[in-house]
Design a protein around this nucleic acid. Structure first.
Lengths: 221, 221
DNA sequence: TCACGTTTGAAACAGCCGTTTATTACGGGG
DNA sequence: CCCCGTAATAAACGGCTGTTTCAAACGTGA
């Protein structure tokens, strides 16, 4: 079937180019010419550039949410009524994130796309992701809440976004950082290696002592 | 003098629009019309859109690097031959970052611009910032090295970028996150409040235990 | 007051953008 | 066989992009 081939070739090319340059900086002509596909094929199969962007995300997020839900099911079944430890939750999430793009070894692309979804304006994208995939995050958040009863709700909310920032920021800018690290320390760092380094940092961040209630950061020392 | 007025009006308008929508998504026509300035003024005063972008960054980074250098001078003078504690270094950096845009209460814009400089492709921008302002970061990194002798060099490098990711990611996406936080917890969070929350998390991240050397993250539990 | 360098102004430039149209080629069921 | 829905193609559409041009206005020293 020629249709499927055209569609996937567009998606394969688009996700790489989007990850490299961003959405606005990647034209449909660049995508279609590099994919050796007619320009009109994008509008024919996807309707618009916006829809193409959403389709690129769905191809990653649909399998991810499914796997993540399953992994959480298994985790809850294993622990029954006991509280699932925080580290277990974090590792489950990490494993689910890693499994999806591992099939096409494109973790870098996946992370870069997630970073773009956050940083790039693209209001429609944030809304789309929120509406389509917000429920998994809500479920995960609730489990984290049970695992960290000592944290006030607001504090936990912000800390989750802190560590989310660390992970997405690091892995989405990995290529640039890797160049610097290689030049300075000679060692070629792998994604797996980076995640090994991230683990204790993330755990420590979540378990950090509560901030002082009066906020004297900018005072003169 | 009318020239100076035109230049600053362009810069004032451009930095806000860039921060809101990104570089590619902000046209010169949008900038000049909102700044009530002729379209050609940008190319006349700055030469090109690229140069305008760099000028926007310079206006923040030049005062920042100067203040930061002075603050580090003072810190080194105060501690003499003693090692400067890590918390002291982090707070000095935070204070320097906060002081600059405080004059025009535009910290949000500043952070968003930093985030864009990282996430947006814009190779020319990264190169420009690296060449122009890399030395301050090098100096700061060396002081952090002395403050954390127990960390291997590579580990420290990555952790600095981890916390950098947290701060930039959080503060540059602050508006979106604030909306969610407000809806969920009702409290309106200020930048100052966020920094208060960030402090213990950043310190804990830098002081987290070293990762296990064998990297078994993705193994089956 | 005149002349001159600097700054504004309106208009046009070529080029790329996303999208649409109309035509052609394909391929399995009546 | 023909027919018809699906898909690929080339070409054109209007619109917006950054940049350039050239004339007009400005302000300041001679």
């Amino acid at each position: 079937m020629a249709q499927t081939d055209t569609v996937t070739r567009i998606l394969d090319t688009a996700e790489v180019l989007f990850a490299e340059r961003g959405f606005a900086e990647t034209s449909l002509r660049t995508i279609t010419s590099k994919a050796r596909v007619n320009l009109a094929a994008v509008n024919y199969h996807f309707g618009s550039k916006k829809s193409l962007i959403q389709a690129v995300f769905s191809r990653y997020l649909d399998p991810f949410t499914e796997r993540f839900h399953c992994a959480l099911d298994e985790l809850q079944a294993r622990y029954g009524d006991e509280v699932i430890p925080l580290e277990e939750l974090l590792e489950t999430m990490a494993r689910s994130v890693l499994e999806v793009p591992a099939e096409r070894n494109s973790l870098k692309v996946f992370m870069r796309l997630l970073g773009l979804a956050y940083s790039q304006a693209q209001g429609h994208l944030r809304r789309y992701i929120q509406e389509e995939y917000g429920s998994v995050f809500t479920r995960f958040t609730e489990l984290v809440r049970q695992a960290t009863p000592e944290l006030p709700d607001a504090e936990r909310f912000w800390r989750l976004h802190f560590v989310l920032g660390t992970v997405i920021f690091t892995l989405s800018g990995l290529d640039a950082l890797r160049d610097i690290a290689e030049k300075d320390y000679g060692e070629h760092v792998t994604v797996r290696d980076l995640i090994r380094r991230l683990r204790p940092v993330v755990v420590a961040a979540m378990q950090a002592p509560l901030p002082s209630p009066v906020a004297p950061l900018a005072q003169e020392a």
